[in-house]
């Protein structure tokens, strides 16, 4: 993105990337809100989980994701719960009847949260085995037959196990996003499991981070005319065949969304009613 975005901006600025580790993105978002100049020069690409973290685990958070000036989304990050094709169950309905063992890196991760949520809300029998360190390690554990499945980002599968997916060796049970991924038209959306408005709000909250994946934002005080220029440049970039060709060669899927769309999702996420956030926190602590 840094190579390209300036080409579409008035004045054609250069761009550089500065990595900022710490707190799963909290440090970077705190920096952008409280330290960085709010003039449209400093921008951010932060973890997609920060809006939900602001609600569920606000300690140390000195930002409001609903006040960020969202520029655009380069690619939504769909997550899936994926199992071996020969697992005892390969659907949510099946997992209500038979135990399915899934690997996890720990409580704070989707590898724990997604199966825990499904067990608590829909009575599935996912048995979570923790202690894994990384997605690749869990995939190998699936291949060895140690576990039946794991949750994680879809791109992790498509970039490393496309053939196995096509052959049915691995099966996606459910996808987590507000809209179906174009490559998964037949995989159930998590939000479609909702039986009432209360459940829908909770599942949309869980799913909204997909829209905030790989998105560009500006600090809250960035002037509106510069935000407009940045948004226009971003949309021009993600629709430019030259950019798309380079992204394809580098195996980056481009599934864009506008700054306005992600701003609306962030605003909705941080406004989750307190009783629902308390219920989710209770579920994830199980």
């Amino acid at each position: 993105m840094a190579e390209f975005i300036g080409n579409y901006m008035p004045g054609k600025p250069n761009a550089i990337v500065q990595n900022m580790p710490g707190g799963g993105g909290v440090r970077a978002a705190n920096y952008l809100t409280n330290v960085a100049p709010q003039d449209g020069v400093y921008l951010g690409v932060v973890h997609e989980t920060l809006a939900s973290e602001q609600v569920l685990k606000p300690e140390g958070i000195m930002f409001d994701m609903s006040k960020m000036k969202w520029i655009g989304v380069m690619s939504m990050i769909t997550s899936t719960l994926t199992v071996r094709g020969d697992a005892p169950a390969t659907t949510i309905e099946g997992a209500k009847q038979k135990e399915v063992i899934v690997a996890s890196t720990g409580r704070g991760s989707i590898t724990h949260q997604l199966p825990t949520l499904l067990n608590a809300m829909y009575g599935t029998k996912f048995k979570i085995v923790g202690g894994y360190q990384a997605m690749g390690e869990m995939t190998l554990a699936m291949e060895r037959g140690e576990v039946h499945g794991r949750a994680g980002s879809l791109v992790g599968w498509t970039q490393t196990r496309a053939k196995e997916l096509a052959d049915g060796k691995f099966v996606h049970v459910v996808q987590v996003n507000l809209h179906k991924d174009p490559t998964l038209p037949n995989v159930q959306l998590l939000v479609d499991l909702a039986r009432n408005d209360r459940e829908r709000q909770m599942l949309e909250f869980m799913s909204s981070s997909a829209l905030m994946g790989r998105s560009l934002l500006a600090p809250p005080g960035t002037p509106d005319d510069r935000v407009a220029a940045l948004r226009a440049a971003f949309q021009a970039m993600v629709n430019d065949p030259v950019f798309l060709d380079v992204a394809k060669k580098r195996q980056h899927d481009i599934i864009p969304a506008t700054g306005e769309e992600v701003a609306a999702a962030a605003a909705k996420t941080v406004l989750l009613p307190k009783d629902l956030s308390a219920e989710l926190t209770k579920i994830f602590d199980q």
């Binding site: 993105m1 840094a2 990595n19 900022m20 580790p21 449209g40 400093y42 005319d225």
Partner: peptide, 23 residues
């Protein structure tokens, strides 16, 4: 000052958070 004047000659600084997410 126009937006074009402002950005001319500037270098955008993209702060990228890295590391595992905690939520």
């Amino acid at each position: 000052q126009t937006v074009e004047d402002f950005y001319r000659g500037k270098t955008l600084r993209i702060i990228a958070s890295t590391g595992a997410a905690s939520t």
